[in-house]
Simulated scan of single mutants.
Amino acid sequence: MIRVLLADDEALMRAGLTAILGTAGDIEVVAEAGDGRQAVDLALRHRPDLCLLDIRMPVLDGLRAAAELRRVLPEVAVVMLTTFSEDEYVTGALANGASGFLLKSGDPRELIIGIRAVAEGGAYLSPAIARRVITRLGAGPLGKQAVANTRVAELTVRERDVLALVGAGLSNAEIARRLHLVEGTVKGYVSQILTRLDLRNRVQAAILAYEAGLVPEQ
């Protein structure tokens, strides 16, 4: 069972998200928070597997809550809820260790898929915002691709294969099945990639894979 803490300042939104997650069968909302400070306090009390945070919240917004969770509970995954108008916040969430980004207005099935992917050690960016986020990370697409290709060039062929599948949002177990490897071996490859390319987490690795053209366009 994936234990989730849900934080959003709108009670109606929390109720809707809880109802959607309740249909999954393998996801349980163990606590709900109305602001970022309460989210951190409840996370310390309940120790969830994953925190689903709205970016805009009172007292402590989602960005600062994510940074605080990374400091006090680094083992807890963080997924951010955003809207099209909040692209500028997404890069900040990435810097603060978030492993997923989901649209509030997205397909309910995407919410479940994203939470499962992150809970299994993967990263997930809503396809609807992935390219918009990437565009904000550099001066221009061609320049970004050239830099990304240079960085990726230092990887082995197998490491590039793994990076491409990380970019596609696959978990370690899914990558292992796809490449006919042991899951522990995939975990080792991912760790090597993050270290060699000086990446903070799987989301940064996924974005680099997109920039380098390793992931087919959705």
Rank of each mutant, 00 (worst) to 15 (best):
M1I: 11
I2S: 05
L5G: 02
A7G: 00
D8Y: 00
D8H: 01
D9A: 08
E10I: 13
L12E: 12
A15N: 09
L17G: 03
T18H: 07
A19P: 09
A19Y: 03
I20A: 13
A24T: 04
I27C: 08
I27F: 04
A31N: 02
A33I: 02
G34M: 10
D35T: 05
G36I: 07
G36M: 02
Q38V: 08
V40C: 01
D41C: 06
L44T: 10
H46F: 14
H46R: 15
R47N: 15
P48M: 08
D49G: 15
L52Q: 01
L53G: 03
I55A: 11
I55T: 00
I55Y: 07
M57K: 06
P58A: 06
P58H: 09
P58C: 13
V59C: 07
L60S: 00
D61P: 05
G62V: 02
G62W: 02
A65V: 03
A65G: 07
A65I: 04
A67R: 12
R71A: 11
V79M: 06
V79K: 02
M80Q: 01
M80I: 14
L81Q: 07
L81S: 04
L81Y: 00
T82I: 03
T82W: 02
T83P: 01
E86H: 07
Y89V: 01
Y89S: 06
L94W: 04
A95P: 09
N96S: 07
N96R: 14
G100T: 09
L103F: 07
S105Q: 15
S105E: 06
D107M: 14
P108H: 06
E110A: 11
L111N: 01
I112W: 13
G114Y: 05
A117W: 09
A117I: 15
L125M: 12
P127M: 05
P127L: 04
A128W: 09
A128C: 15
A128D: 10
I129D: 03
I129A: 03
R131S: 14
R132F: 09
V133L: 11
T135G: 14
T135R: 10
L137R: 10
G138Y: 00
G140Y: 13
G140I: 02
G140L: 10
G143D: 11
Q145C: 03
V152F: 09
L155W: 09
V157E: 10
V157S: 15
E159W: 07
R160E: 04
L163S: 09
L163F: 00
A164K: 08
G169K: 05
N172G: 12
N172T: 09
I175K: 03
I175Q: 04
R177N: 08
R177Q: 12
L179V: 05
H180G: 12
L181M: 12
V182N: 12
V182R: 15
E183A: 11
G184W: 02
V186G: 03
V186L: 05
V190T: 06
S191D: 10
Q192C: 14
L194Y: 01
R196N: 08
D198H: 12
D198W: 12
D198V: 11
L199A: 12
R200T: 15
N201E: 01
Q204E: 15
A205K: 03
A206W: 06
A206R: 03
I207M: 14
I207Y: 10
A209D: 04
Y210R: 15
E211A: 08
P216Y: 10
P216D: 09
Q218D: 13
